[in-house]
Amino acid sequence: MIPARHSFQEAGARARIRALLDAGTFREFCGPAQRHTSPHLPTLGMPVAFDEGVVVGEGAIDGRPVLIAAQEGAFMGGAVGEVHGAKITGLIERALDTRPDAVVLLLDSGGVRLHEANAGLIAVGEIQRAVFDARAAGIPVVTVIGGRNGCYGGTSIIARSCDRIIASEEGRLSVSGPEVIEAVEGVEEFDAQDRALVWRTMGAKHRRLIGEIDALVADDMEAFRGAVSESLGKSRPLDLDELEAEHARLAERLARFEGVSDAREIWAALGVNDPDRVSEIEADEFNRLVATLEGARA
């Protein structure tokens, strides 16, 4: 019998936190009853949310202490405003005081909230700075992507500033949204309606194959929980050697794939025999494929 999956994507921010943490361990900070809502949305005639679209607090995974934030993707597309951003920044900075085994960021966001654009942009910069400070103190920061909005705009840069990224097959990670590219550069450059193209270009499988994310899981809470648990206590150094290694990796990709226009060409070059099947295969089979490719490379 196949056990019923508990979808991460379908769940709200609070349900995601409940499912990832040990039962009864979550303690929320700056919770909804405090009503720290956006002062900017009412000016534009927009409704506010009591938790500003992000839930932050602390708890445990397998008995190990973590700090966790979850963006509520259904509120304003998970976009970062002043209060929303400050909650995440404060949470990550708390790691310097409490030294948890990880800071876990469940990102589900289109990026900066345009209704308070300037405050949102500086907020993503502050979150990124806080991520670096935590990492420099040896505390791992883990990004989890599996919501409907994917991880776009400034939040995509935050994600790649962390130690590690875990995403489901449905996850997307890119700085520009498909609609924005189409609107500015034309449909010939990018057809935002072409869902297959969107997944191939920005989806988690492509990102895993080129090494932009570290773990791909099925859209299942237990799978996410397992992958987060494995990341606890594992930090990537933030030093010159590490950045030189990262640089070499990134440089090699650009040199190797200059002028390539479709992800399938990249996958074929990486050794995938049947690039057209990549989108269809389940996470387990996909991960076996990745392991084989990585084994062949090593």
Binding site: Q128, I157, S174, V175, I181, F190, M202, E246, L250, R253
Partner: peptide, 20 residues
């Protein structure tokens, strides 16, 4: 804003720059 930059994962390059 371009297909190739997104294929390469421009967010990773921008993040690398700020990390440096």
């Amino acid at each position: 804003l371009g297909r190739w930059d997104e294929l390469m994962g421009n967010n990773g390059y921008l993040a690398h720059l700020s990390t440096c």
